[in-house]
Amino acid sequence: MSFTGFPEAALDFYDDLEIDNSKVFWEAHKDVYRDSVAAPMNALTAELADEFGPAKVFRPYRDVRFSKDKTPYKTHQGAFVAVGPATGYYVQIGAPGMRVGAGFYHAESDRLARIRRAIDDDLHGAELEHLIAGLTRKGWEVSGDQLKTAPRGFAKDHPRIELLRHRSLTVSRDYGFDEVIHSAALVDQIRTHWRETRQLLNWLMQHG
């Protein structure tokens, strides 16, 4: 199946699911999820796989075992292309539209320590700053889980304290409801934008 875009029905499905996140609704509309969400996402990631690698298209069910929120279904469909542990490219569609991202979403303590040592290093840290600044100028938004203060062993006035505080580090850009998401041209747009993040991922893999 070639990717031809996500239909409007995909966005409508998630609009409705946010209102009625129930098994009754899901069972009545699972064909819409299958045809308008899951099938296009699989087709999209398949067309990107030649350059970026195979994607994991996430299951639509939430793990509610340890959550106070017991709603059974995710209100978005995401897919992730790994280049390393919890590091890679991301794409998502939901009620707010579509967005793409890249970065590392989790790091064990030893890996996080290596990343912070590289950020602390004047050469490697400045390189990361330069990469982040370049992506920001191109329209990427920097985010990720952060400590409220300096990590242990680093001064609060460190010149790269904002980067050192990250426990995860991602960049993302929002397509919203841009018409491109409904067309085959989305493949090339995501390809172009993911390429922009490749040097960031390379830095994270080299120093993590």
Rank of each mutant, 00 (worst) to 15 (best):
R165H: 12
F25R: 14
H130S: 13
A102T: 06
Y89H: 10
E179V: 04
G125A: 14
F13D: 02
G94W: 07
K148F: 12
Q92L: 05
R111H: 13
K68F: 05
A79V: 07
D110P: 04
R117N: 03
S183L: 13
K148L: 15
I190R: 01
D178Y: 06
T87W: 14
H29C: 04
R114L: 02
I181M: 15
A28P: 03
Q77W: 00
P7R: 05
G134F: 01
D188T: 11
G88H: 02
H207F: 09
G208L: 07
F3V: 04
N202G: 13
P85E: 15
F104R: 04
R160F: 08
L128A: 11
G78F: 01
Q77L: 08
W194Q: 14
Q189D: 13
A133Y: 07
G5S: 00
G139D: 10
I181S: 10
E129R: 08
H166S: 05
D31M: 06
D110H: 03
F104K: 00
A185F: 12
V32S: 01
R114C: 03
R152C: 12
V142F: 13
T170Q: 11
M98W: 03
A55K: 12
Y105S: 13
E127K: 13
P72N: 02
I161K: 11
N202C: 14
Y90Q: 12
F3E: 01
H166N: 05
A46F: 07
R198H: 07
W203R: 01
V81E: 00
L48G: 07
L169G: 14
F25A: 08
A155G: 13
G5F: 08
Y33E: 05
I190H: 05
D120R: 09
D12P: 00
G94Q: 08
S22C: 00
D63I: 07
G125H: 09
T4R: 00
H130K: 10
A86E: 14
M41F: 06
V64L: 01
D12I: 10
A38L: 10
L123I: 15
L48D: 03
A55H: 09
Q206C: 07
P54R: 09
E162S: 13
D157K: 13
H207V: 06
L201K: 06
T136W: 02
G103Y: 06
G176I: 07
A113V: 10
V83C: 01
Y89W: 12
R160A: 09
D69G: 04
S2V: 06
T71I: 00
P159C: 15
A102C: 08
F6Y: 05
A82Y: 03
R62P: 00
H193N: 14
E162G: 10
E51A: 03
V142C: 11
V57K: 12
A184D: 10
L48Y: 05
S67R: 03
T4I: 04
G97R: 02
A82L: 03
Q92A: 10
D157N: 15
L164W: 08
I181R: 11
M205D: 02
G103E: 06
